[in-house]
Nucleic acid binder design. Structure first.
Lengths: 144, 144
DNA sequence: ATTATTCCTATTGACATAGTAGGAAAAAGA
DNA sequence: TCTTTTTCCTACTATGTCAATAGGAATAAT
């Protein structure tokens, strides 16, 4: 399962992309709209800053701005910045400690394929697409 | 990440498919070949039995047999039996407690797509393919 | 009766998750 | 200069999950 860090990161980035209009926006506003604990949102957003996906502005009237335009972000890079890796197993990551069974393990190739299926998918979705979904959905608060 | 339960389940099932030849095989042998703690392997295998993927034979000379032939298993059903679900988020599972933001969440469709990418992949790999990989790899114990 | 197996449940140490909390540092405005 | 609003940083904590380990009961062949 993807943890709340990854899920919140995606929603926070989507919100900023959808509503900031390129201006600095405070996390207070973003987290309120997304109903995410402001203090926890801070920690998630700090991962985005550290990865260079968001630019922070400190002080009064400060906040965050996207580092590039929404169509140039993929969901994959946001999730990786939050989660660390999307690899299903440790042994196929870069810099993984060598598994002694790697030469005889029948499932390594299977996991590589799994990883590729996930990677291809998340790298194929842009933040712009998510932001459009956000704007489309507002007002559509139908309870199924 | 997929837990050891899922990873071990796949390797144990693969081993049985590759080496049992349709006969009852004891878990002691299987777990030794796969270098998995026998006691822990018991717990993993019991999930397979409960899901009907393996048939158990109790008593002396007992063990386990595949419930069907390897080409009729997918990696997906084995992983789901071990892991419970492969869904990346709780809100898109069947019988999930309704999330109050479902009507306005911009990422739900993204996660559905993610889930589908994973599901399509794991349902497209058969146990027979894994068993062939196992047989091919034995003897290729090159240390990279 | 012995032995080899599966079956079932309890326990444990280590670690990760999902926050909460408090305050320091920065910068704008009065 | 003082106040306010923001980000930034670190520590703490409760809860739960993981990955086993452990012990013994039930079963069945010899």
């Amino acid at each position: 399962m993807i943890s709340t860090k990854g899920r919140y990161a995606l929603r926070l980035m989507t919100d900023i992309a959808a509503y900031s209009g390129g201006k600095v926006v405070s996390l207070k506003d973003v987290s309120a709209r997304q109903e995410i604990s402001p203090k926890y949102a801070e920690q998630v957003v700090s991962l985005m800053v550290k990865s260079g996906l968001l630019i922070s502005v400190r002080g009064n009237n400060g906040g965050y701005v996207l580092a590039k335009s929404p169509e140039n972000y993929t969901a994959g890079e946001i999730l990786r910045a939050a989660e660390g890796t999307l690899s299903p197993v440790a042994c196929i990551e870069d810099n993984s400690p060598r598994c002694s069974r790697i030469g005889q393990c029948p499932t390594v190739d299977f996991w590589r394929g799994y990883y590729k299926a996930v990677t291809d998918y998340v790298n194929g979705v842009t933040l712009e697409q998510l932001a459009n979904a956000e704007r489309d959905k507002v007002g559509n608060d139908y309870n199924i």
